[in-house]
Nucleic acid binder design. Sequence first.
DNA 1: CAATTATACAGGAATTATTATTATATAATA
DNA 2: TATTATATAATAATAATTCCTGTATAATTG
Lengths: 148, 148
Amino acid sequence: METVEKTIEKLRVLDKRITPQLIEVLKVMEGNTSHPSAGDVYEKVKKIFPTISLNTVYNILKTLNATGQIQEILIDRERSKYDSNVTLHHHIICNGCKRIDDIFIDLVDLAKLPDVIIAKYNIKDYHVDLYGYCKDCKDKGSQEDSQT
Amino acid sequence: METVEKTIEKLRVLDKRITPQLIEVLKVMEGNTSHPSAGDVYEKVKKIFPTISLNTVYNILKTLNATGQIQEILIDRERSKYDSNVTLHHHIICNGCKRIDDIFIDLVDLAKLPDVIIAKYNIKDYHVDLYGYCKDCKDKGSQEDSQT
DNA sequence: CAATTATACAGGAATTATTATTATATAATA
DNA sequence: TATTATATAATAATAATTCCTGTATAATTG
C-alpha cells in the first residue's frame, strides 16, 4: 500500500466504508516491513482502539488483501502474515525462527517461460521464497530449528 | 522421492522403522504429481489399510518431509499439501481452484543475489510460485475465484 | 442537519486442520 | 523367541480462522 490517505481514497472508490477501525489498521500497516500476523495487527490496534474485535481485524485485512492494498503471505503453517508492500520483491524465510526478510533484487526471468504457458495460465504474478537462516538463528549455532 | 524401495533404504539408514503404514504412504506418494493433502493421502491409504489413523498419516508425512523425501507445500491456507518431487521445479497455482501444476524450467538466477546475502543467510533452497488460472477456471469465464 | 439504509462492528460460537496424549502393538535386534 | 524402543490407533486438545447475530454507524439523500 501507499500512504494511508491514498489507500483510503482507493477504498472509497471501491465503495468501502472508511471506518476508524479500518484507518487504524492502515496506520499499523503503513510502511510496516515486519510481516505481522492478524493477531499482531490486532494487538497494535487495540492499544489505540481497545474495543476492536479480532474478527474485525480479519475482515479488514481480508478486504485489503482482496483489493490489492496488501498481500497475504502463506509461509508459516500456523498463521497468515500480511505484507504492506505489494511491489515486486522476494522473501527470505529463516528456517529457524520463520522470520521473513525482504529482498528487492528480482531473480526471476519470466522470459524463460514459453509463451504458451504464460498464455495458458494467464500468469501475471509470482513469488520467490528463499530459505536460509537469519543471523540470530545462525549465532545460536546448531542450525536446527530453534524456535517454533 | 525416488522409488519406494530406494526411499525405504534411505529411511532404514536413518533408523526409521519400516511399517506397513509407511510403505502404503510411500506407494501413494511415489510418482504422485497431484500434490495431495494429508487427508487425500489418508483416504487413499485407508482403502488398502482400513484401520490407519489420520494421525499416523500426519506422522509419516512429517517424517518424510523432515528427512527430505517429500516436500510440504504451504500455499493453501486451509491445508498443507505434499510434493513427492523434491528436485528443482516451480509451481503454478490457480487463483481459482488452488490447483497446483508443476513446471520444470528454472526461472531463477541466484547469481543475481549478492554473495554477501547468500552467505549471510546461508541460502541453499528456494521456491517459485507463479499465479494464474488453470484451463478449467478460465473456461468458467469470470476469472473470479470459482471454487473455494 | 435529520432520516434512512446498507455495511461494518463486537461478541461469541462454530469450524477444522493439526498436534498432543496415552495405552497398545509391533519392527528390529539379539 | 524375548526384549525394547518406536510406531500406531483412538481420542482429546489446540488454535487460527470463519460464521452468526444483533447493534452501531458511515454514507447518502431530502
